[in-house]
Design a protein around this nucleic acid. Structure first.
Length: 297
RNA sequence: CCGGCGGUAGCAAAGCGGUUAUGCGUUGGUCUGUAAAACCAAUUUAGGCAGGUUCAACUCCUGCCCGCCGGA
């Protein structure tokens, strides 16, 4: 059976460096599962500080003004996985974007329904109540199943309307059959993650994040899809002559809650093995665990 | 020492004589072609201290303590 190793975890847990180590040990090749490192030119803010001699797939593949989707990611990732297998190597997926990882292990039929730009343009001007009403009229069955969170979420409502109005019947995709997947997820107590995040925020500023943003803004708009993410969106509207501590704090807090959301996401994935990086010797345990899996057919 | 202003939940910050301010943080959660996005929920009656007025005080009055500003 074809094997895939997945290394996930919240931000600032050291996923990539662990994945690189394992790749060297196991004749593996890395595929990034990171929804921001796909963007070219966004380096400091997204933490693209990997060693240059290691090949990481699906990084730097589009420009910040291009939109990208899970389905595009999925197709590229599946293609890469097949390629790596064909070369007799082990694909190692490393990243913190839970949805991207899930798209590989658990692809959904509605993925085949493409975004309808015109429809989205109009729907984006609708107030929440009107979106709810629209979905209710179009697809009452779906509407009544929405939980309180989705009911108030414009993105989700718009997508549901879009699916209902698309006349294509959803196709199921079965590009990856019979995979043997090992999913390792790094974790740590919140306090520990927060202090690592705060340190990283400082070091990214020192590395010249503001300069990077200024540069990007010469070519791109603050509203471009790539720039709608942490480390960029907090600063894009400011004058950037001086950097107020207040903005830095907002960024830090956004990172904290991002890490929390990531933990929530990974918690519900079945058959995932967690390792707390504050436990001494965790890395040796992972190497042992992975080795056992790798050597068993 | 005198005068002025202020002391509200982890932090910031309002209104109000009797209902939940709110924001941030923190904590938990939602999730399927935007996901580092977008969204939901919780955070148990907080009001410097001591009295007083009142059916009822965070809200009015008095004293004290503390902080800031101005004057001696």
């Amino acid at each position: 059976m074809k094997k895939i190793l997945i290394i996930s975890g919240p931000t600032a847990t050291g996923k990539t460096s662990l994945a690189i180590k394992l790749a060297k040990k196991l004749n593996g090749e890395l595929i990034s599962a990171d929804s921001r490192q796909i963007y070219r030119g966004m380096d400091i803010g997204t933490g693209k500080d990997h060693p240059k001699d290691v090949k990481i797939n699906l990084i730097d593949i589009i420009d910040p003004d291009q939109s990208f989707s899970v389905e595009q990611y999925r197709q590229l990732a599946v293609e890469k996985i097949n390629q790596i297998h064909a070369n007799g190597k082990l694909p190692i997926i490393a990243g913190g974007t839970g949805q991207y990882i899930d798209s590989i292990t658990n692809p959904q039929p509605t993925f085949s329904i493409k975004p309808n730009k015109v429809l989205r343009f109009f729907l984006n001007h609708f107030p929440l109540k009107l979106l709810q009403l629209t979905l209710r009229l179009l697809d009452f069955k779906t509407f009544r199943l929405l939980n309180n969170s989705d009911l108030h979420n414009p993105h989700r409502l718009i997508r549901k309307i879009e699916i209902k109005l698309s006349f294509k019947s959803p196709l199921s995709k079965e590009d990856l059959e019979g995979l043997n997947t090992l999913h390792i997820s790094l974790t740590a107590p919140n306090d520990y993650l927060y202090s690592r995040i705060d340190q990283r925020v400082e070091s990214r500023l020192k590395l010249g994040l503001i300069g990077e943003i200024k540069n990007l803004l010469k070519k791109y708009k603050g509203s471009d899809p790539g720039l709608n993410c942490l480390a960029y969106k907090e600063f894009v509207g400011a004058d950037l002559v001086s950097v107020p501590q207040k903005l830095i704090d907002i960024w830090r807090f956004h990172e904290h809650s991002y890490a929390r959301r990531q933990k929530t996401w990974f918690k519900k994935i079945p058959n995932i093995i967690f390792f707390d990086i504050t436990t001494p010797g965790f890395e040796a345990k992972i190497i042992k665990e992975v080795g056992k899996w790798y050597n068993n057919s």
